[in-house]
Design a protein around this nucleic acid. Structure first.
Length: 416
DNA sequence: AATTCTCTCAACCGCCGATCT
DNA sequence: CAGATCGGCGGTTGAGAGAAT
């Protein structure tokens, strides 16, 4: 069970895709949509399994892919998201329009990990390496002790260990305060950081006056503002602005000051606010996709989602769109217009960065001409699959789902 | 110039949950 | 209800390119 039948089939090609194969797949999908992936190879005349076709499309042929090197902003965002999501590459990729999970995963494994280590940060835990080493030592000793007392170690599921479901916020799964889950195996590969860690990172410490109950507003802040970021989709960068200038977190021991400085550089938008009474307000955009996007578009480059604090504290949480949608057309297609497909083009508009192979490159550049584009074909075709294309619907649905998730969460929590 | 090493990245593999039959 | 199928995900592999020796 679970195995793809295609995996057993003989005579299927493997390995790198030839330009001819790419052309066939591209031609087929742009004309008919992918529909059922398992039927794509047959229909497109390819000796590949459907899974391979899907992967090729998603990772390489999709027209909304942003090619070229990752910007520093993107890298920073990946680091920030990894701190929250762990190795959930697809969810991280969902916040970086035009980037694939595979690409991000590769970048993480080849570059970012190394950079973080060089900066004294453990890439798995996002904590200073020195701290992690200490914890490992502690764990080793406590493990030894446990082995003496317990014959078998208890398995802890991810849900038990990190009970806040980051990917899909549903009222049933949100646990406001997970103080009970103190076991935090920092040696495992890339666990999402704990709630406590986020509190530490965000500076929402016990100094808050509202810390006595099990449902503190500040407890929500770390996750919830991040959740807002995550759910509000691809074009939002999180910035936690505290109106002090950057300085090492006073809560950190002095020996960690350098690391803190590094954090400021690597996590430029994540410099911890001073421990203060942060009380975010939540504004929920309407469900209507178009008006939501227009709402972002209508704003300036900085769209405050929540920025008030109850006592006039200098801290504010602010969600920013990276830049104005109207300026950069960050969505690969403009959902508010009728000529959607005509708008599809390299997102950053920098053709030098486009890594298409030669024939594809010329083909796509050609296709950017609204008068000569296969995407016009896509639009005009009225096949069961391509009206609109599934990959467009997916993107659209993803945002709508995110908004609905957030609304459910807000409804469950009530006014803060 | 030849060899080895390192890095990048496309693609595969195996698993899982959802859906279909 | 059980098995089959499918789409999706994260981990891993290995080819190829470039750097170092």
């Amino acid at each position: 069970m679970g195995r793809h039948s295609c995996c057993f089939e003989q005579k299927l090609r493997k390995g790198l895709w030839s330009p001819e194969e790419d052309e066939k797949l591209l031609g087929h999908i742009t004309k008919y949509g992918h529909g059922c992936w398992s039927s794509v190879p047959k229909l497109a005349g390819l000796q590949r399994c459907g899974k391979s076709c899907r992967l090729r499309w998603i990772n390489y042929l999709r027209p909304d892919l942003k090619r070229g090197a990752f910007s520093q902003q993107e890298e920073n965002l990946i680091i920030e998201l990894h701190a929250v999501l762990g190795n959930r590459w697809s969810q991280i990729a969902a916040q970086l329009p035009g980037r694939t999970d595979n690409e991000i995963k590769n970048l993480w494994n080849s570059c970012i990990k190394k950079k973080l280590r060089q900066g004294g940060i453990d890439p798995n835990t996002h904590k200073p390496l020195s701290e992690v080493a200490k914890e490992e030592e502690k764990q080793l000793t406590s493990q030894k002790n446990n082995e003496l007392s317990k014959p078998k170690p208890q398995m802890v599921s991810m849900e038990q260990q990190y009970p806040v479901e980051v990917s899909s916020v549903t009222t049933s799964k949100v646990i406001i305060n997970n103080k009970s889950t103190s076991t935090n195996n920092m040696t495992t590969s890339a666990p999402p950081p704990t709630h406590e860690f986020l509190l530490e990172r965000f500076g929402a410490s016990n100094e808050s006056p509202t810390t006595t109950t099990s449902c503190r507003p500040c407890d929500l802040v770390g996750y919830f503002s991040f959740q807002q970021l995550l759910n509000y989709g691809s074009n939002i960068g999180l910035s936690i602005n505290h109106h002090h200038h950057h300085h090492p977190n006073p809560n950190l021991p002095k020996s960690d000051a350098m690391i803190s400085e590094f954090n400021s550089a690597v996590y430029p938008s994540l410099s911890p606010p001073t421990p203060a009474e942060i009380k975010p307000t939540i504004s929920i955009p309407p469900l209507d996709n178009n008006s939501f996007y227009r709402g972002w578009e209508a704003g300036t480059s900085s769209n405050n989602m929540s920025s008030s604090s109850s006592n006039g504290s200098n801290c504010s949480f602010e969600l920013q769109s990276n830049c104005s949608l109207s300026e950069n057309n960050l969505f690969p297609w403009d959902l508010t217009t009728t000529d959607k497909e005509v708008q599809i083009q390299a997102l950053d508009g920098d053709t030098n960065n486009i890594k298409w192979s030669g024939y594809l490159h010329s083909q796509f550049l050609m296709n950017q001409n609204p008068h000569n584009t296969i995407y016009n074909e896509m639009k005009s075709e009225t096949t069961p699959f391509s009206n609109p294309p599934a990959w467009q619907l997916n993107h659209q649905n993803q945002h709508q789902q995110s908004i609905q998730d957030l609304q459910r969460l807000a409804a469950a929590i009530g006014p803060i």
